[in-house]
Design a protein around this nucleic acid. Structure first.
Length: 291
DNA sequence: AACTACTCCTGGAGGC
DNA sequence: TGCCTCCAGGAGTAGT
């Protein structure tokens, strides 16, 4: 499940491997994954040069020549692998494909793109949720605006004050607010759990009940967790693997294991409709504001 | 407006 | 072994 660190890591690699390249072929095996704006089709990608690769939240944005933009969302299970002509790994990121991950293409490879240097980019997705949209610049701007994505958690717009105000407006669990892309763009299920563990806040706490000092802790925790994943992920994770495949240091995916802070067994349950992990001792329910 | 539930998908895990 | 059910979850949409 690619979240901000995975997408950003992928973006940085693609900047090196793709910018300046020209698209020479484009094939889509599962048509619904590719959507083209008015008057456009996949054929319009041919001959276009990749000028820039940006990221907004979990969205990748490729700026192409002739005023076209390719917007990619890997959703839960999308993966991109870019291989050179001699099949060397140039860039990879996203969700790994179990079992058949290393020999491309395979049956979950739904998009194949080749470039002027004879390199090939594969988009794989077991669950077929990923989406590619080819749009004209103006439509892309509107599309991204309509997403109403909140500030990037690693950038200046994401402040403790902003987070506190956002939490105050909602009565849903605090975790649901972290997952809301319109509040903050890029956090997914894994890093929401990890951030709440670091901040010692119970995921099911009503967002409104979060005190200002706690919001400040949570803000710091989000940044710490994302920066760690970004820093560690780029160098370590081999092709076919997602950053999120590494064991998480704190709580996500560690049900039944001891909390590294206090030794209490990590619990698993459902919060905001998602599998959620937490330490029942460190992340205790606090009614500080009600008292 | 705010919130909840359902939907899209397939592979893997666990029960019997 | 094989069949069944459940679970994984980002985000759009429909319903309350």
């Amino acid at each position: 499940m690619p979240e901000l660190p995975e997408v950003e890591s992928l973006r940085r690699q693609l900047v090196h491997s793709l910018v300046g390249r020209t698209i020479t072929s484009f094939e889509v095996g599962v048509p619904k994954l590719f959507q083209a704006g008015p008057g456009l089709s996949g054929g319009d990608l041919l001959g276009k040069t990749i000028l820039r690769i940006g990221r907004k939240g979990k969205l990748l944005r490729w700026d192409l020549s002739d005023g076209l933009v390719l917007v990619i969302h890997l959703k839960l299970a999308g993966q991109i692998v870019h291989l050179s002509e001699d099949r060397q790994d140039l860039a990879h990121g996203g969700h790994p494909v179990p079992r058949w991950g290393f020999s491309l293409p395979h049956k979950a490879t739904h998009v194949t793109m080749t470039f002027g240097d004879a390199s090939t980019l594969y988009l794989t997705d077991i669950r077929q949720f990923a989406r590619l949209r080819l749009l004209r610049t103006r439509d892309a701007r509107r599309f991204l605006k309509d997403q109403r994505l909140g500030p990037d958690p690693l950038k200046a717009g994401f402040t403790p004050t902003y987070l506190y105000a956002a939490l105050q407006r909602r009565s849903v669990p605090v975790k649901a607010v972290l997952l809301d892309q319109q509040v903050v763009g890029g956090i997914g299920n894994i890093y929401a759990d990890e951030s709440l563990w670091v901040a010692r806040i119970l995921p099911s706490r009503s967002a409104r009940s979060i005190a200002e000092a706690e919001a400040k802790r949570l803000h710091l925790a989000v940044r710490r967790v994302l920066r760690y994943a970004l820093r560690e992920g780029v160098a370590v994770v081999p092709q076919g693997k997602a950053i999120s495949d590494r064991p998480f240091p704190y709580c996500h995916g560690r049900a039944g294991a001891p909390c590294s802070r206090c030794g209490t067994t990590i619990l698993k349950g459902r919060v905001a409709g998602r599998g959620t992990y937490w330490c029942p001792t460190c992340q205790i329910e606090i009614h500080a504001r009600a008292a």
